[in-house]
Design a protein around this nucleic acid. Sequence first.
DNA 1: AGAACATGTTAGCCAAAGCTAACATTCTAA
DNA 2: TTAGAATGTTAGCTTTGGCTAACATGTTCT
Lengths: 143, 143
Amino acid sequence: MKEEFYTLKGYKIKNEEILSSSMEDYIEMIYRLSQKSDQVRVRELSLALNVQPPSTTKMIKRLAKENYVIYERYGCIKLTEKGRDIGSKLLERHRIIFDFLECLGVKENILEQTEKIEHAVNDEVLEKINELTKFLKDEILPF
Amino acid sequence: MKEEFYTLKGYKIKNEEILSSSMEDYIEMIYRLSQKSDQVRVRELSLALNVQPPSTTKMIKRLAKENYVIYERYGCIKLTEKGRDIGSKLLERHRIIFDFLECLGVKENILEQTEKIEHAVNDEVLEKINELTKFLKDEILPF
DNA sequence: AGAACATGTTAGCCAAAGCTAACATTCTAA
DNA sequence: TTAGAATGTTAGCTTTGGCTAACATGTTCT
């Protein structure tokens, strides 16, 4: 199977990605906020993601339509089972990339870099990076 | 300086990124094609990027307006000095990420993963990854 | 209870980057 | 040299995910 070049957008179209990067960002953040407060609201989420409330409303509607969250107007946002499963995977993915960058010694914009890279990696790469980080932490960094 | 979360798009807006991912993809590919044929045309570029010709025309116009390429209707596409500088950096970035993934033992969709990750990393991360790959190749993999 | 404030929603705009259909130009070869 | 094929362009549509302005709803305090 020959591998071919595409533009970034081209890969998205070709793979018919189910979750856009933005959808992932919102779900991941809802998951994070749910762990603390259990009462996630539009305003809170908007602040956390540095986005204006109408953008959040719009995205929440979409996530609700696709069954990642349960929401009713003026109410609070709850992840469904499906949303929670994905949320925890996304958070784990975030953690793996963050740890890797930290272990690499990255100093500047480490959160931003994590957020960008996490959307790019697939399961295989994530797993390899995870193993590599463990290896570096256990066998290399101590010396 | 506190680091905050943004959506992917949010980072782009906030950092006022000069080159979009797509622009990078086109410049990188023009650079690659220039190395072989010197005569880069819309059709060739469209095929290489798996994009329809009108998309290429549109992007080339934009790249020309911003002085990355020189182009006139129905003619062939040439990188400017500025375009060439960036092109070579983009190709080097591609190479570094590809080598890293290869050295990680990634087997599936390695090109696609390279193409996605390369847009995400900044200079610092790229440099660290480069060093890490060299280290792995020299000190670890041989054993 | 009702005023004022906080929060949420709607409508409608924008840019990016794809696409198709229709048209224009250039090249090739009879 | 002119017809047809190949290539390129234009116009205009689509989706995504932001934004602001204006409006709606809920909450709180006097």
